[in-house]
């Protein structure tokens, strides 16, 4: 029967110095070795990679089913060719558009717009939200105006914004900005308002002046909320971008989809949709990594 190493050193197979100092408290190193000996060794790299890939099995089933339905469904319904092209058609559409050098332009134009708009929403919205959370009087003054504008959907602004800015980058950036601005403001506000009273008091009793209190207590306490606000803003902004580009734009993924519709190129439409989903996922992942990097104390 294999026995596990024990602290009192009865077992000859126990690792290292544990047997040496019988009756003495074990050293930290010995304890660390003991702990390591109790943990099963990590599986080899190829097994870990396999298990990570195998978690995506449902996605794989979905793609394969889509391929089969598109291929064999055409025998039943010939229109399926246009209605729902298979994944392989989407991939060849991507290769086609990359070769013509237009796909990257569309992607970069869309990314540029969303990053500009969400960046502006963060630059303006975070200070505004923090100030509103910090000062009750300021909040009381700004809140009615904000709450009046907030329920207007960003898309309802499109006609007016076209009149103001014409069709182009500025108009779309403005729409995305409107969509991202409010989640950023409201989350920053909540973060600054709900700072633990005891942390504020601890700061004050250790001699922090208002400016220091804001920078060393309120801002770091609000940081998780600020990141949440920007992440939500980025998500909503990404949706607003596509909607804005569908209606009126000279380029971008939304424009690409709408243009493909007029040409009956459903493979391009699906490619655009897949790219929009994938890029949204990548942006959110990057935001989460940034949050982890900025708040090492906040890790789960």
């Amino acid at each position: 029967m294999p026995s596990s190493p024990s602290l009192d050193g009865e077992d000859a197979r126990s690792p290292g110095a544990l047997t040496a100092n019988r009756g003495m408290p074990p050293t930290q190193e010995a304890l660390a070795r003991l702990a390591a000996s109790m943990v099963p060794p990590p599986p080899p790299a190829w097994k870990r990679a396999l298990s990570r890939i195998s978690r995506l099995w449902l996605l794989a089933v979905f793609v394969i089913a889509w391929q089969l339905i598109s291929m064999y469904g055409q025998r039943v319904n010939p229109q399926l060719d246009v209605m729902m092209p298979p994944p392989t058609a989407v991939i060849s559409a991507a290769a086609d558009l990359i070769a013509r050098g237009v796909l990257l332009t569309h992607i970069l134009d869309s990314l540029k717009r969303v990053l500009l708009a969400v960046g502006a929403a963060a630059v303006l919205g975070v200070p505004l939200g923090l100030a509103m959370g910090w000062s009750k009087r300021f909040r009381a003054a700004v809140d009615p105006l904000l709450e009046f504008i907030r329920p207007i959907p960003p898309l309802a602004w499109i006609p007016l914004s076209i009149l103001w800015f014409g069709i182009g980058d500025v108009q779309i950036v403005y729409i995305i900005f409107l969509a991202a601005f409010f989640p950023v403001v409201l989350n920053s506000l909540a973060g600054a308002r709900d700072v633990d009273t005891y942390l504020v008091r601890a700061g004050l009793s250790l001699g922090a002046r208002p400016r220091e209190l804001f920078l060393t207590v309120v801002l770091p306490a609000a940081l998780p909320h600020i990141f949440t606000g920007i992440r939500i803003g980025l998500g909503i902004g990404w949706m607003a971008l596509v909607a804005g580009e569908l209606v009126a734009a000279p380029s971008g993924l939304g424009y690409m989809i709408n243009n493909a519709r007029t040409l009956f190129r459903s493979d391009y439409i699906l490619l655009g949709m897949v790219l929009i989903g994938a890029l949204g996922l990548v942006l959110d992942y990057l935001m989460r990594q940034a949050a982890r990097f900025a708040m090492p104390w906040h890790r789960q």
Partner: peptide, 29 residues
């Protein structure tokens, strides 16, 4: 003010500062 420093029941340590940074906080102020 720091001439009447407070120790709270629930510690009230700043979670974003390390042990050393927490102890240093009042000295910086």
């Amino acid at each position: 003010g720091w001439e009447r420093a407070v120790v709270f029941q629930e510690y009230a340590l700043f979670p974003w500062y390390t042990v050393a940074q927490n102890v240093r906080y009042g000295l910086q102020r």
